[in-house]
């Protein structure tokens, strides 16, 4: 079947098998391999992307369901000049990643969360990231990074 999906601002039309998952479409058809696959059960959140601005697990969305929708992946987070998004910067500054495999999904989940909770408490950040698993960081620095990214710009650095 044919789908037209706008990914990181770029619409493209492709033929895909009906069973193609959004994450497979992004990785294999669009060549955007930043979005990772970590499980089969909608548990780990490694594949999180934004669909119409909200976090979704792209392993549990068919490419067909994303037809005519807008997707933002980790590759779409930096500014055009390559400057990292404040959330990406905060992850580096607070050492919120180690192996980096969960990181794209974690950043996208955080982006959606901060959209919905601009000034969260630590407890809210922890709840808000309940759908994303990380095996390296123990979450301590991820939580610090998200809290920092939520602060007013002058407080981030």
């Amino acid at each position: 079947m044919q789908v037209t999906v706008t990914v990181n601002g770029v619409p493209e039309t492709h033929d895909v098998e009906t069973r193609t998952l959004l994450v497979q479409y992004l990785r294999e058809v669009r060549g955007l391999t930043g979005t990772n696959i970590g499980c089969d059960t909608t548990s780990c959140g490694a594949c999180t992307v934004l669909m119409d601005g909200e976090s979704v697990k792209s392993c549990t969305v068919l490419a067909a369901q994303a037809d005519a929708h807008e997707i933002i992946t980790i590759e779409g987070m930096a500014a055009a000049d390559g400057t990292m998004h404040p959330i990406q910067q905060a992850f580096q500054e607070h050492h919120g990643l180690q192996c980096g495999y969960c990181t794209p999904g974690m950043v996208m989940a955080a982006a959606s969360f901060l959209q919905e909770h601009p000034q969260p408490s630590e407890a809210e950040v922890r709840e808000g990231l309940e759908g994303n698993l990380c095996r390296c960081t123990g979450y301590h620095n991820i939580v610090q990074a998200v809290l920092a990214a939520a602060s007013p710009p002058e407080a981030v650095r």
Binding site: L32, T33, N36, T73, I74, M84, P104
Partner: peptide
Amino acid sequence: MLRREDPALLSGEARFVHDLV
């Protein structure tokens, strides 16, 4: 010191085995 590994991992540019074309 901040990690030099991070920008590639944070931007999706890092390549894991599954990412190799």
